[in-house]
């Protein structure tokens, strides 16, 4: 058993938070994992991605090979497309429909969403709305984690436990908001 995931988004959207939560969950599930991320310069509003690899046997490469990703989880539509060549022929894209426009040449959103739809296996989620519904506009990343969770090899209960663990120091209110964000995302993906 193995699952390779590309996490994508823009610096500041909380990509590394999702990565950390998945790491905790993988550890708790007794899986082998490696998770490569970017720090430093690229985090300043630039494209950010993280490679997550889960397996029941030893993993060598920290990076997912092109064509091996089972899942692209992106908090931003354009950023999902950036890694399309990593996707396995049967791979899935779980993506937010809400663009993060901080560049002057952001393409037409319909063109971006059409390209995602053309890939076949996809789930598009209104993470902006759902995060507001959950009470925290900053929880779009957790909405997207929830939306993708049904396609992961990790159990829902363990992921929720990991969210609690991750936000432990921020108090119950933040924890509850994030669990709600996760739940709404999961529901929206229909899993």
């Amino acid at each position: 058993m193995k699952q390779d995931i590309i996490l994508a988004g823009v610096g500041g959207q909380g990509i590394l938070t999702i990565a950390n939560i998945i790491d905790y969950a993988a550890q708790k599930s007794g899986l082998c994992f490696k998770q490569a991320e970017v720090h430093g310069m690229s985090q300043r509003g630039g494209a950010v991605q993280s490679h997550v690899r889960l397996s029941d046997v030893e993993i060598y490469s920290d990076l997912v090979p092109k064509g091996a990703a089972d899942l692209i989880l992106s908090v931003e539509p354009l950023e999902a497309l950036r890694y399309i060549d990593y996707l396995h022929v049967e791979g899935k894209i779980v993506v937010s429909r809400n663009p993060y426009v901080n560049i002057p040449d952001y393409p037409d959103l319909d063109k971006v969403l059409d390209a995602i739809k053309q890939s076949g296996n996809h789930v598009i989620v209104d993470s902006e709305k759902l995060s507001r519904d959950a009470g925290s506009p900053r929880s779009q990343n957790i909405v997207m984690l929830g939306a993708a969770s049904g396609f992961m090899v990790l159990e829902e209960a363990i992921l929720i436990q990991s969210i609690k663990e991750f936000f432990k120091s921020k108090g119950d209110k933040i924890i509850d908001m994030n669990i709600e964000a996760f739940r709404l995302g999961r529901e929206a993906a229909g899993t």
């Binding site: 630039g46 064509g67 354009l78 950023e79 399309i84 060549d85 996707l87 396995h88 022929v89 053309q118």
Partner: peptide, 16 residues
């Protein structure tokens, strides 16, 4: 490895 699709050439970069 076989891939689902190839990279799009019309995607703008998103520098830091």
């Amino acid at each position: 490895l076989q891939r689902k699709g190839s990279a799009y050439d019309w995607l703008p970069g998103r520098p830091p």
